[in-house]
Design a protein around this nucleic acid. Sequence first.
RNA 1: UGGGGUGUAGCCAAGAGGCCCAAGGCACCGGAUUUUGAUUCCGGCAUUCCCAGGUUCGAAUCCUGGCACCCCAGCCA
Length: 565
Amino acid sequence: MNETRPKQSNFIRDIVDADLESGKHLNIITRFPPEPNGYLHIGHAKSICLNFDTAEEKGGECHLRFDDTNPEKEEEEFIEAIKADVAWLGYSWGEHLYHASNYFDQLYQFAVELIQNGKAYVEDLTAEEIRTYRGTLTTPGKESPCRDRSIEDNLDLFERMRAGEFGNGEHVLRARIDMSSPNLNMRDPVLYRIRHANHPMTGDRWSIYPMYDFTHSLSDAIEGITHSLCTLEFEDHRPLYDWCIENVSAPSRPRQIEFSRLNLEYTVMSKRLLTQLVDQQQVEGWDDPRLPTLVGLRRRGFTPESIRLFINRVGVTKKDHTIQMSLLENSAREVLDQTTPRRLAVLDPIKVIIDNYPDGQSELLDAINHPNFPERGSRKIPFSKEIWIERADFMEEAPKKFFRLSPGREVRLRFAYLITCKEITKDSEGKIVTIHCDHDPASRGGNAPDGRKVKGTIHWVCAQHAVEATVRLYDRLFQVAHPLADPAEGFGQRLNPDSLKIIRNCKLEPGLEESAPESRFQFERLGYFCSDRHDHTPEHPVFNRIVPLRDSWSKIEKATPVKKK
RNA sequence: UGGGGUGUAGCCAAGAGGCCCAAGGCACCGGAUUUUGAUUCCGGCAUUCCCAGGUUCGAAUCCUGGCACCCCAGCCA
């Protein structure tokens, strides 16, 4: 696709380039460090693309490292799901798959080193007391009575913490930095806590687990990460990140650089909120196509290319931002337009009978697979006396600009004939049941020999050969662009009740039912659709709408003064 | 009343003293082509860069002072 186009530059690439040029680094190493406590979403995709692309462009490497230091929240299921998502997005970590838990022994030694140098101590205070001692944003903290414990005692206590002699919460290892620092992270932060829990990777080998700041900085150093890219909320942690590395015999000195996280309108990106939506069954699981999770977007039908294109268009800066859905949708359309074969499908069918077409006759018509790429061939589609067309393509009293079917008007059936509406039949309630038309037998293929111009072209499916299908139409998850704008109201109230519409008796062009799950098509004049990767079968075809086509008619329609019903 | 950040069009985003009466994308508005009211194609869309002063021949870019918004008081990451 446009992947050959150079990636948009950003301030991080500039830093990396400068470090290469100055000789500070000969090789660039980055990392994507997810915690396996949930599924990845499109915000993570930003980090994944940034880390992998930056490294790759510079001929370096990018590690996939699970930040698995909190066994109570982390699960094997998430580890596997994350690996699958990163791979699906198109990135490979090669040999470089790591877990922070791989370094637990080494990390323990670093902690001992800190204690030996009088830079860490074992705390007796309770969590509650530690919080009180920490002070507030505007007032300094107070030093713990344990702060000046002897090195020997600290070493002994820490060893016993490791040995499992104490219960959860009885002790903690703290860095000895500065209780009056204006940066709360530097007020003797906790480095290790006691947690008698089973870890997905290390089982019950450990009863103490290192905290994020200590683990992350030193894991980066151990792996020789040159540029440790993270989101803005860690900016305050950078002094601690540096402190850990500087006060221990760390093998390298990575540099942390922060960028702003991705926000998207009409959805939420926090793992906590997504988990809540899933747990409360507001959606049908982590891969619900309405969710911004990678598995959700995948199931909806988005391609990895379109997500990468989108991420590239978003850019990387330190400014808080919320991207409009249209940017994502357009990125999808751009890829899908080029790659997707065209097919005919009628979602809201109404019957058309071609009165002057011979009873019992049917024929096969040529339909091109992609009008802009004739080399992709064509297929044969059946046509006979009765066909389905879209209900919205007929209007009993139509405005002048309505180029579709209406009494007395002529329209083109795509790839087939010109037809003229002769009469309509209605049921007792006045609802249109059948439309009767005549066709021009000389217009086979769609053009009349006399060269008369017919402005409108509509899609259709032969009634006799139509394949019945379920189609799911998705819309934005929330009714408001910024669901979290006013936390006073619960965000659950703002869910869009019409985010999912299931249509059951759609008529598809034959053949579509045979497509493999996760096959994408453009249903002409409607949008891009993808066969559901779980539910689609030849017996019961199920298609998800990825994104509708751009629709300038709806704009005209809205702008035109309203007719009677 | 603490610390750390950020402010360029509706949404993103280039820009690092003169080439800026400010790239590019999305959105939007025209118009051309079209057997998808799609695609494609052309054209339009900030005399102005949060505000106010200042420095300079010259400032979005430098200085000073404001203002607005975001993050931080987990033994989460």
